[in-house]
Design a binder for these strands. Structure first.
Lengths: 218, 218, 218, 218
DNA sequence: CATGAATGAGACTTCATTCAT
DNA sequence: GATGAATGAAGTCTCATTCAT
């Protein structure tokens, strides 16, 4: 699993850059192992060995193994989930600075695609572990509901009023869009990453699939 | 997680019915625990306690813990994946015994829905563990490719030739259908099972979403 | 530290005799080590080695190391503290079946002496650890207050009314008797066990010391 | 446990006053922790945190953790044990500058009481650890035997010759006095420090108890 | 067949101590 | 002198697996 590319992204961001070298190595090793074998099946000694540090060093920085998991995964999730639906963006959409729903959908998919491409190992860890750790679930729901769901619904209603998309319950619209996009990410990066994907094409097809699927059938 | 209902389904099937009472209890307990906590985080002693048998008894029936996982999960997966695309069914579709693509899609979704509803705990285990155990992955790909993929493609091409759906690469069509359906199952049973779902409606919306999404836009 | 003698006492009592051989070995080893090095400074691996069992075996019988401490020490303490002041005995004293306070004191000292002689390693562990573990402290206070203190006070008052001992606050009488007896046990078994003690004489002196100390000075 | 009061006493004495501020903080923290949790159960990092210094700083001043223990406890013990029986004092007693044994006993008890009151945390540490560390035991026996025991015996014999106390083996007399006084200190400061003690009264009762207990019963 | 005590490898974690800064 | 990150040995505890009963 090539991680180095996305590690640059993750580890050298402003906020995390106050990590020591050893800490970065630990986090890097942990991401690789958790992503490969799962959290529960990865031992701290493996992480230490892969990181080239003593096992005790891990626990100097992270009180428990679970701590390590959470402090790796949560910042990424927050960065994944919130910025796209940040107030400023939503405002721009609603104020008609975005010509059409299609533009919005296309931007959404491309953004998610870029992020997933960079951070897939961590997203994978998250997807696996969210079902077993309340802490992850709780925080995510929080973030998702306050930063994404309502705003997403608002945008959908906006374009329904403008007549661009069909009068389906907005909740179902959101569910279907997320399903489709998420399904693409899953197939692309998790299930069949080794396939030769023509991403440009797939994204375009997905946009059209969603647009047609939701189109107002006069 | 209520399992008893689906256990009837699973444990009393012809093939498994040669299980002893104890074996059934073990399998039932293992499914519940694996589904709840994940395979690696579940201990055999927990399973034994929940099943009301001695720890040793588990190992009399299943050589290792992993053995137990595989022998629980694989038959279910096979049953999930293969019958719908069994030769006989595909033949019927291609021989025009099915009036339209829509009928096919609706039947697909309803079938998957019913199966998932009954077997979700096991499917969840599978979804979680497939990424970490080659055995599971290998067998699944095998089954999927030989029993599903080709046949699915064939059906798609058939309806494209008939002009019912757009001329998109059939692989992408398949991917998008699976994404959409799978996304629905995930939301319905894994992410938000406690929500009050109007399944009839959601299924209908999903069918229309897919149909519109793929419609030949003359 | 010779323990075998008292182990006979402790391990083969009716209640404990349902211990397996291994359990007995573990308890025996634990008592020896705790008594020698203290609870916190004794490792479970030392105990296991000395007991000739695998380390895991300890934890099959005692959930934690502290569990082991408590389940060793508490029964002994209960046996040390309660029987002497059991209702039946106290009744006998108060009903004048015991001629004098001196008989009572002599019996008290001899009984404590015999018990301490047999169980000193465990008593030592208790004395050391009671200050750091609330569980021990709480249970002891309970037992002491309900089974010993009140009854002791009653006996003292009884003999004060009979004019055998001076009219000092009974609480102080009890405190001084206990101090004196306890001080003797401490010197005898803990501080200077290797000294050549003439126990008969010392006990007699102690009895007289207490009797004179408390005598009604006409 | 309020320590500040006695710390003044301990840390600002002539000899120790060459300690740096940090050193004093370390010693203070160590005393508090050792007294509360025991030596073995206290970690150097806890001490460092409580003292507000870095972990390494402790080891700059004390080569090992045990070093810290010994250099805290021993000076106090020496101060506890020796001065009262210093040559000059004993001489004064024997040269009849002290009218009676009772005066001696009363002075002894009051002196021990005052010292214990001030230094109980350290005495507690000592009492706990003396049984596990040869160094402590060895030094103490040394000091006790040369500075206390012989002189104490001499004083007892002196008053026995004067007919003030009974002709009991002087060793037993010493043992009983120490037991009684020590028992009082234990009850007062260790076992029941929260009780509302009337110390004046208790000391007086203890003096009389000992005096009567040892009186020459013509 | 079933049991459950026993095992020992290995999990997570703590801690006294060192050492470069 | 002081710091605190790093260490690695050792600690407590868990667990899949075995085997005598």
């Amino acid at each position: 699993m090539k991680i180095s590319e996305m590690m640059e992204q993750f580890l050298n961001k402003d906020e995390e850059s106050n990590m020591s070298e050893k800490q970065k190595k630990i986090v890097k090793a942990a991401i690789e192992m958790f992503s490969e074998k799962g959290f529960a099946a990865t031992s701290t000694s493996e992480i230490a060995k892969k990181a080239g540090v003593a096992e005790g060093t891990i626990f100097r920085h992270y009180k428990t193994k679970k701590d390590l998991l959470i402090s790796i995964v949560m910042p990424t999730i927050i960065k994944y989930v919130s910025p796209f639906f940040a107030k400023s963006f939503v405002q721009e959409v609603l104020e008609n600075k975005y010509e059409s729903f299609e533009v919005f959908i296309r931007k959404l998919i491309k953004n998610r695609y870029e992020f997933a491409k960079r951070n897939f190992p961590i997203l994978k860890i998250y997807i696996q572990e969210v079902f077993y750790h309340e802490e992850l679930r709780g925080e995510f729901q929080n973030i998702f509901l306050t930063h994404v769901y309502e705003k997403f619904i608002k945008i959908v209603k906006h374009f329904q009023e403008k007549g661009e998309i069909a009068e389906i319950p907005p909740e179902s619209v959101v569910r279907m869009i997320i399903s489709t996009v998420f399904g693409y990410m899953l197939a692309r990066f998790l299930i069949s990453p080794e396939t030769n994907w023509d991403d440009e094409l797939e994204i375009e097809l997905t946009v059209r699939f969603i647009m047609n699927g939701l189109k107002n059938q006069e």
